[in-house]
Amino acid sequence: MTLVVDGLFKAFGGVQAVNNVSFRLDAGELLALIGPNGAGKTTCFNMLNGQLRPDAGSIRFFDNELAGVAPRKIWRLGVGRTFQITATFGSMTVRENVQMALMSYHRRLFALLPRAAALYVDEAMALLDRVGMADQADRPCSVLAYGDLKRVELAVALANEPRLLLMDEPTAGMAPKERVELMALTADIVAERKIAVLFTEHDMDVVFGHAGRILVLNRGQLIAEGNPAEVRENDQVREVYLGAELGHA
């Protein structure tokens, strides 16, 4: 089992943002975390990636406890991340963004003399090739179209050969066609590398089209869990979503 989350709690002031959430995630699986606004998705996510410390509960990633561990250490254990609003290095080229992650992975961050642009070129190009960005490798990241930026982020997230990918709203801000392409690409990569993926998403087409399993959060609690068909038929889920969107998905 890649990830075992057990009894996660987090409160802000008097609000119980995440209330006793437990789930498991296995290699090669695409698990979607959904719920209406304010359900606790982001809080849950930020506890997994180290930005928030849970009040209680444990997050086991293989043999390591992730609860309360700093983001950069979580990354070193083999967890890659993409952000809802892309975070890349604007003053670097597409390839350099990936090389940067590779330099960190190979622990060369304090090397003062080698030319960074000449390091790990082949590895970086292989990753960019995998996400379909090899032809734009020399362009500055600051001029890319948003959908391309998301692909660069995916390549960066793969640089440390992660066993778990955390994707926060992977298709937010993208055109419908791009969304499908990016999720299909993610699904392929996950299958070939046996990576476990946890993602949050607002777009129900993306969720029901690509997730293997779905977790539904409402008011901090897990109200449903199962494959897309099961979740779609769940009465409580229908109620939470007012029966509107899911019925037609």
Binding site: N49, F83, A87, S91, L109
Partner: peptide, 18 residues
């Protein structure tokens, strides 16, 4: 490069182990 990375995006820098 790592120094520039920290300036460009602190969030991303943390997320790639810097």
């Amino acid at each position: 490069y790592a120094m520039r990375a920290c300036r460009d995006s602190e969030l991303r820098s943390h997320a790639i182990g810097i």
